[in-house]
Computed example of a mutant assay.
Amino acid sequence: MPIASGLKRENPVDTGPTRTPAQQPASGTDAASVGLARPVVFLGPLPPPHNGFSAACQRMLELLRERTRVVELDVAKRGTGRRAAVAALGNRLRQFARMAGLCVRDRPHTLYLGLSGGFGQLLDVPFVALAQWFGLDIYFHHHSFAYINRPTWYSRLIMRCAPRAKHLVLCEMMRTELARIYRLPSANVQVLPNLSLIDLSSTAHQRDSVGEALTVGFLSNITAAKGIFTFFAVVRQAQDLGMPICARIAGPVAADIRAEFDAELARTPCVRYLGPVSGTDKEQFFHDIDVLLFPTTYHNEASPLIVLEAHSYGIPVVAHDRGCIGSMIDAHSGLLVPRDADFAALAIPYLQNLDLARERAGAERQALLAQFHIDRGQAEATLAQTIALISQSPTV
């Protein structure tokens, strides 16, 4: 459903004259008009660290800056341990002081919030309360199933602080469950899929010839919960059945599993670990594989960008049904494994069929790509409507 159909802007109370901002708009925007506009406050984590949440926030920030003046409040936690926690708290206090001064001087009209997934919501509460006090429109952008899978008192608290807020979610199931659990007006909860926020590959997936071995890929932050050890098990079981199968693995390895990861890598034939990849190295990763395996058991999985990136190259995905993944994969774009099912037991027959039908792989990839671009176009239209609504400054 188009997001514009359910969200309407409510003008905050006029509290005084507008102050000319120092920050200038992106190229292509009328500098004078935006310079006089009341700003949007952007609150969320930006890279680094690089993950799906920070990447989506970065993209939303870029799009908003193309339309209006934006004041950025970056609240990413960088590093681990006590020192990093203290630094993150200090940054929150500084950003809150900035927002308070901004509300008094420049009268922003909207707060866009990339909502934290856990206890970080308690640190988001003061910003939401301040925005509510000054009459700002508030947009929550939800990127986690943590507080849907396990409803929390602090999630109820932050949503009650802004009873008229608009909520942007990643799929229809997330929309239904969020509204039901937290008793939100259904008209205020709208789907904005991550499909509109990923960067498209510059070239479609093409291979000069069909190789002797089927190549499966794994690309993610490499943790036990993301399914790396299930991935190794699938590759070895397929090889034991006589399948010609090799593998490519990419991404940073979590320190707590490094020794076990190295041991599995050493004992699994025909597997290459590429390390973290980006840019042309990531493109090459997708060009080198026939299918992506994503056996995640991460309980807060939402709408992983890696699934969408694979589809943008025409690569089918085999993944557990977690979060919004069920809305991202169908019979034409991969295999959806029930969340509590044996991943290997279902993935291996799929890989066997894929190996036998590799002569038809090119046509199937083209069909997957065609549907991907249709879905992408619809998602981009929804995103454009959403950005326009958030950016729209009330008449002064």
Rank of each mutant, 00 (worst) to 15 (best):
C270P: 00
L36F: 12
L115E: 11
A204Q: 06
A31Q: 11
E380K: 02
V125R: 06
C171H: 14
I158E: 09
D256K: 08
D330F: 05
L293F: 05
T382Q: 15
A26L: 13
L346G: 01
L195M: 14
G117M: 04
A266V: 11
R207M: 04
R322E: 01
P47A: 14
R175I: 12
L292F: 00
G275P: 05
T280M: 11
E309D: 08
R164H: 10
L292W: 10
A302H: 11
Y147A: 13
T395Q: 13
F343W: 04
M328P: 14
S303D: 14
V70H: 14
P252F: 08
G79P: 15
Y273I: 08
E301C: 06
R82F: 14
R175G: 10
I228G: 00
D199P: 13
A32P: 00
Q190E: 07
S144I: 13
S186W: 05
V291P: 01
G44D: 10
R83I: 09
A233L: 09
P17T: 10
F127C: 12
D288I: 02
P338V: 02
L168F: 15
T223Q: 05
M99N: 04
M243V: 06
V337E: 10
T223D: 07
C103L: 14
G334S: 06
A361M: 00
R267M: 06
I198D: 02
S209D: 07
T68I: 08
E364P: 00
T280D: 14
Q371F: 01
A26K: 03
R78S: 10
N194R: 09
R183H: 09
H373N: 05
L265P: 01
N188T: 11
F96K: 06
L351E: 03
R9H: 03
A344I: 05
R339P: 04
P252M: 06
A388D: 15
R339Q: 13
G275D: 04
G117A: 12
R59Y: 02
R98I: 02
Y154W: 15
V40E: 07
P193N: 07
I348P: 02
D355P: 03
G251Q: 03
A129T: 00
L351H: 08
